[in-house]
Computed example of a mutant assay.
Amino acid sequence: MKPSEIINLGNGLEIHFCLDAADTNAQFTLFKCVIHPNAKVPAAHYHDNFDETLYGLKGSLTLSVDDQVVQLGPGDHYFIKRGRVHSFYNNTDETVEILAYANPGVFTSNYFKDILGIISAAGPPDMARLKEVMLQYGLVPVAN
């Protein structure tokens, strides 16, 4: 068993990749998200080529899916079918942890590595490049 690959985005969001597409013959990816209070989280988006299931491990995450807002706590789960616009945030004083399962395994740790490269560059992030990377990995940003 290999250890999780940890990608610290430096903005209150950590991604712990458990199983990447290469580990599962592209059947799924599995990763834990650690979301600190007031973390900068991805813009509202939808997935055009994979579904995502979230499972609460610690704390309470606010999840917005289409016009529905739900709280995801320990032991709770939520299935996000491709095409459904969603976003999430931690508006508590506690760290939140969730497990994310993406199926099929087309969404990989390289997405977060590419995002890290953009947000850690000098100056403000290149928003056009961020959008380009999101689209490359099947995430379609939606203006609020």
Rank of each mutant, 00 (worst) to 15 (best):
D67W: 03
A43T: 15
K131F: 03
Y46N: 05
A143S: 14
L54S: 03
I118C: 09
V96L: 04
E94Y: 12
G138V: 00
Q71L: 05
V65C: 11
Q136M: 04
P141D: 09
T92C: 06
G138M: 01
S64Y: 06
L135V: 13
E52D: 06
F50P: 00
D93G: 11
Y46A: 01
V142S: 01
A121G: 06
M127T: 14
A43W: 08
G105V: 12
G123E: 07
G123R: 05
A100D: 13
T95L: 02
D48S: 10
A100P: 00
S60K: 15
I80F: 01
L99S: 09
Q68T: 13
N49M: 05
K131A: 15
N49D: 11
H86T: 04
Y55S: 13
K113G: 04
P124V: 00
F112M: 08
D114H: 13
T95C: 07
D51G: 03
V65E: 08
V70P: 00
R84F: 02
I115N: 09
S64M: 08
G83W: 05
L61C: 04
E94C: 10
K113S: 10
P141M: 03
G56H: 09
V133P: 11
P42K: 06
P42L: 02
Y78R: 14
L135A: 05
D51S: 07
I119Y: 06
Y55N: 12
D66H: 04
P125H: 08
F79G: 08
G59I: 01
I119C: 02
V41Q: 14
I119M: 01
E132G: 06
G75H: 11
L72V: 15
G105A: 08
D114F: 08
P124F: 04
L72W: 07
G117S: 11
V140H: 05
A128I: 14
S109T: 09
M134Q: 15
S60I: 10
A39S: 13
L61W: 00
H77N: 14
L63K: 11
L139V: 08
V41E: 14
E94H: 15
L72T: 09
L72R: 08
Y78H: 15
K113N: 12
E52S: 03
E132A: 14
V106Y: 09
I98D: 02
Y89V: 02
T108E: 07
I98G: 03
S87P: 04
A39T: 11
L135D: 00
D126W: 06
R82K: 15
Y46D: 05
S109P: 01
Y137P: 00
V96E: 03
D51P: 00
Q136Y: 06
L63D: 09
E97K: 10
L72G: 07
L63V: 14
R84V: 01
L139I: 02
S60V: 13
A43K: 08
L61F: 02
K58F: 06
L54R: 03
L135H: 05
A121C: 02
N91C: 09
P42S: 05
A43M: 15
